[in-house]
Amino acid sequence: MAEQTKKRRPVKAGYFTVPENPAEPPRLLGTRCEDCGEHFFPKRAVCAKCLSERTTEAPLGPGGTLYSYTFVHFPLFGSMKMEHVGYGVGQIDLPEGPRVQVPLAGKQEEFSVGMPLVAELEAIREEGDTEVVILRFKPTAAAGGAR
């Protein structure tokens, strides 16, 4: 973590947390319905299941299970990094219920349906002393046992 002194800003605000401690995994920012208990990502004002307006923000993850995946052989949009000329993408089931689609860390042969994953932040470029970060998931084995 040579770059931990850099400030980090999310590529899009309001979708995930950027913890002060770089070792701490980010959480996804979703919604919980106070009436039926259903969770959603991203945030929404009206419950899509029971149509209640009594919804509150709920942090989701950081763990998840891989429902499906691919490996895209094109540069990651908005990234200035050579290692992003090809990238994994996954559909991940969060323990709270929502399914999300985000990039995956790793190579295609490292992915398998049903494997446990954990969220992490990945810098796609630098703007002065600030890193612009996206949220992605990585296999928990590669996370050194974190969650």
């Binding site: 590529v11 899009k12 979708y15 991203p42 429902y67 499906s68 995946y69 691919t70 895209v72 094109f74 990651l76 949009f77 908005g78 990234s79 993408v89 996954g90 559909q91 689609q101 985000v102 990039p103 349906v113 796609i124 996206i134 949220l135």
Partner: peptide, 22 residues
């Protein structure tokens, strides 16, 4: 250079490819 939506970093082919993988 910045996405209008968070998922914009993913190519449309990627979404359909995941249907195929499943």
């Amino acid at each position: 250079t910045d996405p209008a939506y968070l998922e914009d970093s993913i190519l449309p082919a990627g979404f359909f490819a995941m249907w195929a993988t499943r």
